[in-house]
Amino acid sequence: MSALLDVRGLSIAFPKATPVRDVSLTVEAGETVALVGESGSGKSLTALALLRLLPERARIASGEVLFGGRDLARLGDRELRDVRGRDIAMVFQEPMTALNPVLSVGDQIAEVVRLHQGLSRGAARARAVELLDLVRIPEPQRRVAEYPHELSGGMRQRVMIAIAVACSPRLLIADEPTTALDVTIQAQVLDLLDALRRDLSMGLLLITHDLGVVAEWADRVAVMYAGRKVEEAPFEVLFATPLHPYTRGLLAASPRLEAGQHCSVGPLNEIRGSIASAAGEKGCAFAPRCPLARAACRIAVPDLVSIAPGRLSACPVTTAAPVSEACHAAPVG
């Protein structure tokens, strides 16, 4: 069976820059795939490109976005509109700006189901209440008439999710869906997204910068750095034996709740410099910050090499060495 979503060699270009290069990605039905990276990594642009929602001057320079046997990158506008919201839905980081402030939440949900499913006004209204209940909003009959500003941040994000799943999409793209939320609310929203993924057997593409979220909720993880995918692995493999120095650096740099580390004992492992050093780099974009970089790393972009099924890394230094030894060579201090 072919994957639900199959992105092949996607590159996104602005007139003067190419912030996403040659990214491939698959999502199976019922699977949660996390796309991880810091700001500037191109993860959000990649997500937007899947539905061709790119900013005005950006365009898909090359690559295919295969979904249900069709290439979304080349689909006509009308067909694409049918796909958006019906087959593939999207949830954004800021529910306040994504919702229309002058329409009640019920009207906004009803609008989507009427557009895609042709329901009558009354049926759409009933469906809106049902959907609010589905996303676990208490008293949906009352909430359906409220406006976005009357709801809390967590509630607004639930409304966004209700709109997204209104037409039972086969793929849900969630772009930093919990970044603006508090940690106890984040747990609720992730729990909800996961339950919906199961119940509707959707594929879930989770765009995030939070490794904790990835570790707990993702099945597979793709790590992006400066516009390229640098590593991909099943979640447990990634966290147990990260291969790419960037992934290792990230894992080492994050303070953990369960770890015994404290500032009185010693400093955190830091990744020196910032992602901006990738600009103008001919070789590996991470080389200027990488403790393992060799001269060869700065000459040509390393290939993404398949190490095991579903296991890719774009670092010749660490993939050449046995995994255990490479881990000992990980940056300290």
Binding site: F14, A17, A276, A279, G280, E281
Partner: peptide, 8 residues
């Protein structure tokens, strides 16, 4: 928008 190249 052209930050990358100029920064370099």
């Amino acid at each position: 928008t052209a930050g990358a190249r100029i920064a370099a």
